[in-house]
Design a protein around this nucleic acid. Structure first.
Length: 479
RNA sequence: CGCGGGGUAGGGUAACGGUAACCCGUCAGGCUCAUAACCUGAAAAUUGGCGGUUCGAUUCCGCCCCCCGCAACCA
């Protein structure tokens, strides 16, 4: 069995789980399940990113310790996985796990040993009014928009820097070698163009006295790692690097297996992560002397109606759990898989969700199941249960794969209409039953193909066919 | 001239140098096994604008207009 490793980005725990993360992990889960169905040995990773200034502030706001805050949030993220139908064997890593902390420090040491970390003074703009550091992008006309009358102070700060600039050519070589390193291609072009323009070293630490919530920098009491540097390492610490043992799984040689010998280390992420995943992280791996990732898949964003960015202030956000509560897990998975554009931004509205639900699930697979099952059960038809080769999801185009399956549903509906087995069975029972058995077989095939997309439903259909009985309630009641 | 993405039927998307496809919706007909479901057919797009290349462009090139991200430490 060929190993296959797939991971989502680790959501930052400064806010509740949102629809964007739900989309990302559902897609990764669909890929993971389809690879598993195709006979791969799959390692599927997710977790939580817990360090950094935002978390620190959030915890302070709530008057609790950062660790306590993170524990609470990590639980929340973990708790939603079953509601999203994520395969139960998924690995859940936290960047505060002792194993990860040790790995991040080891990673730092390696990169340092190889000469890619150095200390440098750099100046920070500080707004006394906010008592916060400000980045240039936060400023309006060179001033803090909240305190436009206050002069910004320039503070000198000494941080560690990562020699990103040393990897420009190596990154470009990597991109040239692997034509499908970043998917989709327009994102790949974007990152190539970015790297071609030149890279600047970036700071990878913070002064502990100002921001203590981070992994201590090895050999320097006064500094903690900048959260990005630590978080990215999770992709390898999750599979046991450096001690080659996955937590609690006791698997020797895990890193080698999942990272080096795998058919594809796939990192799923949002388009805001393009740079970090496909350029920063790859350079970091090179700096540590490790193999780069195999493939990065970039999602678009889920937007509100009319492609408008979702935001709380606009009130157009969607809570994935609310949707699950109202429509069920598979309904959300179906929408993510079939209706959202696989790579571009696409809108999520309740109205559209309902429409899609009715069309694809209630009228589509739900109704087909009812009509076939009814004929099967009423006539006591015996079906031949043949295992089927899972559908290949080419180029991570989950939507296209769904279209193929729904085409089969449509064909089954059409053949019922054209051949009218419900009529034939009354005049020629033998022939009618044969036709119905064929239909039952087709439905069984469809159910198997649906497993990665809507696993709960897929299992239900197969069960009912095997037990030769009608479901107590329709699979998807029309709304 | 900062970088990148995008503008295709009412909505959402696809495709492609040679009759513009799919889903939803709309309209008409059919069927009755089924969840007012299903099947068939129809209406509906001069593919943002203007120019160019070409026998032929929505597809390639140039310019313009509009929308959306990013612009480096935002995880």
């Amino acid at each position: 069995m060929k190993p296959f490793y797939i991971t989502t980005t680790l959501p930052y725990v400064n806010a509740e789980p949102h629809i964007g993360f739900a989309m990302e992990i559902i897609r990764a889960d669909i890929i993971a399940r389809s690879k598993k169905a195709a006979g791969h040995d799959v390692f599927f990773n997710t977790g939580t990113d817990e360090h950094g200034i935002k978390i620190y502030r959030k915890a302070k706001e709530q008057n609790i310790e950062p660790q306590e805050y993170c524990d609470k949030m990590a639980l929340k993220f973990k708790a939603i996985l079953p509601a999203l139908g994520i395969m139960p064997e998924i690995n859940f890593i936290r960047t505060t796990d002792p194993h990860h902390v040790a790995a991040a420090q080891e990673f730092w040491k390696l990169v340092d040993k190889n000469g890619y970390i150095y200390k440098k003074n750099y100046s920070v703009k500080y707004c006394v009014g906010c008592e916060l550091e400000k980045t240039d992008s936060e400023l309006v006309n060179g001033r803090c928009p909240l305190h436009p009358l206050t002069e910004l102070e320039i503070i000198q700060e000494e941080n560690y820097f990562f020699k990103w600039s040393a990897f420009q050519q190596k990154l470009l070589d990597l991109y040239a070698e692997r034509p499908d390193f970043v998917i989709p291609d327009f994102r790949f072009n974007e990152i190539k163009a970015f790297v071609e323009r030149g890279l600047e070293d970036f700071s990878i630490s913070r002064i502990k006295s100002k921001m203590p919530w981070g992994i201590p920098v090895p050999g320097d009491e006064d500094q903690v790692m900048y959260v990005w540097f630590d978080a990215l390492v999770d992709y390898i610490s999750a599979i046991g690097w450096p001690d080659d043992e996955v937590q609690g799984k006791n698997e020797k040689g895990a890193f080698k297996k999942w990272w080096m010998e795998t058919g594809g280390v796939v990192q799923y992420c949002g388009k805001d992560n393009l740079r970090q995943q496909s350029a920063m992280w790859q350079a970091m791996l090179m700096a540590a002397g490790l193999e780069p990732s195999r493939q990065i898949v970039i999602n678009g964003f889920v937007t509100g109606e009319g492609g408008i960015k979702m935001s709380k202030s606009l009130g157009n956000t969607v809570d994935p759990l609310e949707i699950v509560k109202e429509y069920g897990t598979d309904a959300l998975r179906y929408y993510v898989a079939r209706e959202l554009s696989p790579f571009e931004d696409s809108p999520f509205t309740k109205e559209k969700f309902k429409e899609t639900f009715n069309a694809g699930l209630a009228n589509g697979i739900g109704n087909l199941t009812s009509r076939v099952l009814k004929m099967v059960v009423d006539n006591g038809v015996k079906i031949e249960f043949k295992p089927v080769k899972p559908i290949a999801i080419d180029g991570y185009n989950i939507k296209a794969a769904c279209d193929e399956i729904w085409k089969l549903i449509q064909e089954a509906d059409k053949s019922i209409q054209d051949q009218q087995p419900f009529k034939v069975v009354k005049t020629d029972p033998e022939k009618g039953k044969e036709m119905i058995a064929t239909l039952g077989g087709q439905l069984y095939t469809i159910a198997q193909l649906l497993e990665p997309i809507i696993p709960e439903t897929a299992a239900k259909i197969q069960e009912h066919l095997r037990e030769n009985k009608m479901p107590a309630a329709p699979l998807f009641a029309r709304r």
